[in-house]
């Protein structure tokens, strides 16, 4: 069960990384995800059915995702729409486009060679999935780690953190946001391409709930692996995707029907949002107690209500300190 989760998690990892780029680096909740994920699947499967190799088809899926991100980026920056609305518009439009790409709502692969068929056939499916997933996720992480070491990467981080200051320092912030959307949705579509090949079909509904899956993976990953360095943060996304898959597998093992998985996903997201908050609260209390002891004040004299109350999701969902 764990082995399967690792394999599946590695295929979902590019989705978590894509969501991480918009959500954490650019500080934008991007709903394009729900459209670009099935788009990656649709383009890849269609390309494979028309004779392209799995490698070329997956790359086309990635590029299609980048284009979807570009559209949202233009809506967000040039047309000055709120980013949530921009994402919703692209996502809705992509439904029709995906239908046109596929021709019908579910397109199965026939006997085409998927990426894992390039590996030795003697290996089990799980090993094949893990090796291929690790290879592709590894390449994605390597490229992103390099990107965020360049001046362009620094500009991207600065734009997400403080766009007024970035513009004042010569950064064309609109361009940066568009680039961020493109890279992010490219990764998400790539994940869709991998999942479609793993499942053996592309489905118009496979994007539903992917933003929740992505966000949950990001937050789970950050609970288990913390750090400031980019490779640590990106590896945390892979860990998050794997653990999230594992949780779902456990739930299914407990007898939850497939239809209930979506509400389970939402539930997991709620829990992982609350968990760090509770931990912070506990730590603050402990710190206060220690401090009061140090200066010799009876800790019972102060009630907990004197602690500064925080809005539930403040500081976790958005970076409140500029």
């Amino acid at each position: 069960m764990l082995i399967t989760s690792i394999g599946q998690g590695l295929l979902w990892a590019p989705l978590a990384i894509g969501v991480f780029i918009t959500f954490r680096i650019l500080d934008i909740p991007d709903l394009t995800t729900e459209g670009s994920f099935p788009m990656g699947a649709a383009v890849t499967v269609s390309a494979m059915l028309s004779g392209q190799s799995a490698w070329v088809a997956s790359l086309l899926g990635f590029v299609a995702g980048c284009l979807a991100g570009w559209v949202t980026g233009i809506l967000d920056t040039k047309l000055r729409m709120p980013s949530l609305l921009a994402g919703i518009l692209t996502m809705t439009g992509l439904y029709s486009i995906n239908m046109h790409v596929m021709g019908k709502s579910n397109v199965p692969l026939l006997d085409q060679r998927v990426l894992t068929s390039y590996l030795p056939a003697t290996w089990s499916v799980d090993v094949q999935t893990i090796v291929m997933g690790a290879l592709i996720t590894g390449v994605v992480i390597a490229v992103l780690v390099w990107l965020f070491k360049t001046r362009l990467g620094l500009s991207l981080m600065a734009t997400g953190n403080n766009s007024a200051m970035s513009a004042a320092n010569g950064i064309y912030t609109d361009r940066m946001i568009i680039i961020g959307y493109m890279v992010s949705n490219g990764c998400i579509a790539l994940s869709g391409a991998l999942i479609a090949q793993s499942n053996g079909y592309a489905d118009i509904g496979m994007g539903i709930g992917t933003i929740v899956i992505g966000l949950a993976s990001v937050l789970v990953g950050e609970i288990f692996l913390r750090g400031r360095q980019m490779w640590v943060r990106l590896t945390a996304m892979v860990v998050g995707a794997i653990i999230y898959r594992f949780l779902l597998t456990v739930a299914m093992g407990l007898g939850f029907p497939v239809d209930d998985l979506k509400i389970l996903s939402a539930g997991i997201l709620v829990i992982v949002i609350c968990l760090p908050l509770l931990r912070n609260k506990y730590q603050t209390k402990q710190q206060l107690k220690r401090y009061l002891k140090q200066i010799g004040v009876d800790s019972n004299a102060t009630t907990t209500s004197s602690l500064k109350r925080q809005a539930p999701s403040e500081g976790l969902l958005s970076r409140d300190s500029k």
Binding site: L154, N162, N169, S321
Partner: peptide, 24 residues
Amino acid sequence: KMGTAGELSVAENLTLAAQHTSSM
């Protein structure tokens, strides 16, 4: 808070200003 990027380090902030013509 407006003039600096809080999530970035002191050195990275200085880099933003020092290399302000090569942001891409």
